[in-house]
Design a protein around this nucleic acid. Structure first.
Length: 869
RNA sequence: GCCGGGAUGGCGAAAUGGUAGACGCGCCGGACUCAAAAUCCGGUUCUGGCAACAGAGUGAGAGUUCAAGUCUCUCUCCCGGCACCA
């Protein structure tokens, strides 16, 4: 029996969809119809091409889009390219190829691959962040931010990556190494563009509540914003010349009576003033030391706290006691005021520091009697705290804050962890800023001079300075102020890659608008995005930045919704195939997994070799796999992240050419829940491919309609089977449970295969149900079944709920909750009927022997449980 | 350390508190074939039994319930994130 001709079918329908613009959404749509905006996180077109992870989310959104069209929605389902970015530029540095060329080449490969998967994108809305007609509006939004006072320049220590030749935002640096490329970074004081995302901290935090997003992502954003409520308290210094008060921030103002010393971050501006002459040497030495420590070291050494006494004292405003002022790098300069009041009785860090330097410790909250720890930060009653004594924490806080405010010693304050967003990069391949410098003063260009076009250059090498490669483009840099005609210089930094992706979903709505970013009328119809699918690696960066920009656009009345993405789903990553790994030492002897750590033998530190073995060579005992030939040896069994170095990367092109896009799409959705991390298994694709072949054989015969399809009235059983499937597939699609939807389609085919014929009407409805998942095959069969071209806008099969009710039901009979038998009864059967029938059952009788029935529980259509002793 | 999510056959998984393992992969047996592939039919959680059936079983332990993979508590391990944020 031959396999179905997926290659011919798929290229035929891809061509028809393209030629007929099947999925093109016209500019004028019937706005009375409901809308559905299904958005994918647009890809960065890398040189590697798609990997199997990309199509996972894209297939899901495509299935939903196709389903919604059939449900009568106007569906906006666009795609584009996030094409500015580092890899193309680094490739340019290496080879001299202009990033524009690399980008174009990569895009056409990505486009080819996406088209080969049969996604129903409206290709006429394709956008590209590197296109001047696109980035004109990215610049325009920057201008908006600038005009609203949300973009400013600041000279401050920023992360500088020598290897990449650029600064990076805090969130792009992990433990002192760049997220891209993993290069070491250092802090450098530089003048940079910064966006005031902190002004929006509260709005961004509150906005999360209403979003239908994964809880984990909302939580991550909350933590990132890091709101904490407390107080700012001013401590007057004693024996200091100027007597500038020290501002500290605390979330526990109620513990002020236990503040036995103050600590300033080494970077705090007051350090100099506070250091007494005798302490100058020691202090400057300490500051030098902590400057030299990278953040990585500071984090590594987090348990061992160091510090130095300034020689000065402050007055605790609550008890008027004189307390010493210290400097320590466990206090962060960037958070709060860069200074704290230390309450060692209530804070573990302060406790450790106080112990080390023998500073006094006073408890201000009564710990429970059995408390054995050091600092106590639990609930309790205030002690040693004068007028706060006897109050609980919440009451104490309230009372002390009003006391501080009355006496001008401080005030209630809310602090956020989030810092302003470092927005400039010393790169070439990014959006130029619409900024010129006239007499060294930055000036924003008026709208009519946008876009500022990225000049063509030949030398992409980082200049090693904050100027960036654009500083080589002398003709471009030297310009005149178009308004005053004065001599001017252009900004040589460019925007970070996040810029273009902060608002691209708005441009899809109105991609060719020359007059505005988006026409408000159309924007109002389409926004917000109804379904946004993309990886969880963007949980804070992209998703927070995009929300920030959107919120600013909302405040500026450019867009109609405060939040851009109503529902968000993260597809789980697809790992490589499941592997069994045997570790072997240099004598070629197997080493059991229990002795292995990081490819080394824990017993003698020998380097070990990985050897892939097959499932035939292992045996499972308990929850571990052992070597069959030596059952003492535990074998590692797991799936690894796909990576070039591991050699377990699956290329979708190969899968598609062997099994077709439909089988590929179906498999990716059948693997398991969309959100879940799951290992790839090429055998699984064979399974979905087999299923599609079954469908093909059942419905067609040599490219014609199969003789087993008959224009006859369907039998009741056939209709029931169909409607069970309609019900399941529809419900599952509404809940994005693609895997179980596919199971029920398979169950239908398994049943239909056993029928003596398939009524044409049923065949057609089934094809419609399958079509969002396997669109090419279904279009072909739809045509063969004699219907007009394209089923993309056919009405989704309607459920007849009366057909879900079966004539007879299977009842499980339990005795004390244990299954003892099954009976089949008419659906009208009463509890009494069922009890009678079950009591007649041999096995039930046997199990009820010598027992007294105490209670009978009946769950209609499901279970009868005898409770007996 | 803190936050979030998990743990179910050889594997991916399914299961409104109500028959655990649907569907698929793999494997075993059979049919077709000169043979193989493809296809079709049957079986497949483990243990005992020819079978009927019985016992055990959803990471571990306790609890609630007529009934727990599902609810509650304690613990272990895995994945993701954050981490001196006062």
């Amino acid at each position: 029996m031959s396999l179905y001709p997926h290659k011919t079918i798929e290229s035929k329908w891809q061509k028809i969809w393209e030629d007929k613009k099947t999925f093109h959404l016209p500019d004028k749509i019937d706005e009375k119809k409901p809308k559905f905006y299904a958005l994918d996180m647009f890809p960065y077109p890398s040189g590697e091409g798609l990997h199997v992870g990309h199509p996972e989310g894209y297939t899901a959104s495509d299935i939903v889009s196709r389903y919604k069209r059939m449900k009568g929605f106007n569906v906006l389902h666009p795609i584009g390219w996030d094409a500015f970015g580092l890899p193309a530029e680094q490739y340019a540095i290496k080879t001299g190829t202009h990033p524009k060329l690399t980008t174009e080449k990569n895009i056409s490969n990505f486009r080819r691959q996406l088209k080969s998967l049969g996604f129903s994108y409206d290709w006429d809305r394709e956008i590209n962040t590197t296109d001047p007609s696109y980035y004109k509006w990215t610049q325009w939004i920057f201008k908006l931010l600038f005009d609203r006072g949300l973009a400013y320049q600041q000279e401050s220590p920023v992360w500088w990556c020598e290897e990449l030749g650029t600064t990076l935002a805090n969130e792009e640096v992990i433990d002192g190494y760049s997220e891209v490329g993993n290069f070491q970074c250092t802090r450098k004081p530089l003048k940079q563009w910064v966006l005031k995302i902190t002004d929006y901290a509260e709005k961004l935090l509150n906005g999360l509540d209403k979003l239908d997003w994964p809880e984990s992502t909302k939580e991550m954003q909350k933590n990132w914003i890091g709101k904490s409520e407390g107080a700012e308290i001013y401590f007057l210094t004693s024996k200091s010349e100027k007597n500038t008060p020290i501002d500290i921030f605390t979330t526990r103002p109620d513990t002020i009576f236990g503040a036995t010393y103050l600590v300033l971050a080494p970077e705090n501006d007051l350090v100099n003033e506070l250091t007494t002459n005798t302490k100058k040497n020691e202090v400057s030495k300490y500051i030098e030391q902590s400057k030299r420590k990278s953040d990585l070291e500071r984090a590594d050494l987090q348990k061992i706290k160091t510090g130095v006494f300034t020689g000065s004292y402050a007055i605790n405003p609550a008890n008027k006691k004189e307390i010493p002022i210290w400097i320590a790098d466990y206090v962060l300069a960037q958070y709060g005021t860069g200074a704290i009041m230390a309450v060692p009785g209530e804070d573990q860090r302060d406790w450790e520091f106080a112990k080390k330097y023998k500073l006094p410790i006073t408890r201000t909250v009564e710990p429970p009697e059995d408390f054995l720890g050091e600092a106590y930060n639990g609930e309790g009653i205030s002690i040693n705290s004068d007028f706060l004594n006897g109050l609980n924490i919440a009451e104490s806080k309230k009372k002390i804050v009003s006391w501080l405010e009355e006496n001008n010693y401080g005030k209630g304050k809310i602090n956020y962890k989030i810092r302003d967003w470092l927005f400039s990069r010393q790169r070439y391949w990014g959006e130029p800023f619409p900024i010129i410098y006239v007499k060294d003063k930055p000036k924003i260009l008026p709208e009519k001079y946008l876009p500022v076009i990225l000049p063509n250059i030949k030398n992409f090498k980082p200049s090693g300075s904050p100027e960036g490669p654009l500083s080589n483009a002398k003709d471009w840099i030297n310009t005149t102020d178009p308004v005053t005609k004065e001599k001017a210089m252009r900004e040589t930094n460019t925007m970070p890659q996040w810029a273009g992706s902060c608002w691209y979903f708005l441009r899809y709505i109105d991609p060719f608008n020359k007059l505005s970013l988006v026409d408000p009328k159309i924007e109002k119809y389409w926004m917000p995005v109804d379904l946004y699918i993309g990886g969880s690696e963007h949980a804070v960066l992209h998703l927070l930045y995009a929300r920030f920009w959107h919120r600013v656009l909302y405040d500026a009345k450019i867009v109609s919704t405060p939040e851009p993405f109503k529902k968000l789903i993260h597809q789980g990553i697809i790992l490589g195939e499941f592997e069994f790994i045997l570790y072997i030492n240099k004598n070629d002897e197997p080493v059991s997994l229990e002795f292995v750590e990081k490819n080394k033998d824990l017993r003698n530190n020998d380097q070990l070799i990985n050897k892939k073995i097959t499932s035939d060579e292992v045996i499972k005992k308990g929850d571990q796999f052992f070597l069959k030939s030596d059952e003492e040896i535990i074998v590692e069994s797991r799936a690894f992240k796909m990576s070039k170095s591991r050699g377990n990367v699956i290329n979708p092109d190969n899968i598609i050419s062997k099994y077709g896009a439909d089988a590929f799409r179906l498999y990716e959705m059948f693997m398991g829940p969309l959100e879940q991390v799951k290992p790839w298994n090429t055998r699984g694709v064979e399974g979905t491919f087999r299923f599609l072949n079954k469908v093909w054989r059942l419905f067609t015969d040599n490219g014609n309609i199969s003789p087993s399809i008959k224009k006859l009235e369907p039998k009741k059983l056939q209709l029931q089977q169909l409607h069970v499937t309609i019900n399941k597939v529809t419900n599952d699609l509404e809940e994005f449970k693609f895997n179980t939807a596919i199971s029920s389609l398979m169950e239908f085919i398994n049943a239909a295969q056993k029928w003596d014929y398939v009524p044409l009407s049923i065949a057609k409805e089934f094809i419609l149900l399958l079509s969002p998942f396997a669109p090419h095959l279904c279009e072909e069969i739809w045509e063969i079944l004699g219907s007009k071209i394209t089923l993309a806008y056919e009405e989704w099969p309607k459920l007849d709920a009366t057909l879900l009710i079966k004539d007879s039901v299977n009842i499980a009979i339990q005795i004390n909750g244990k299954l003892r038998g099954n009976i089949e009864v008419k659906k009208e059967a009463t509890k009494e009927d069922i009890i009678k029938i079950s009591k007649a059952n041999k096995n039930i009788q046997l199990n009820l022997k010598d027992k007294k029935i105490e209670k009978i529980i009946y769950v209609p259509n499901r279970i009868l449980n005898f409770v007996a002793k």
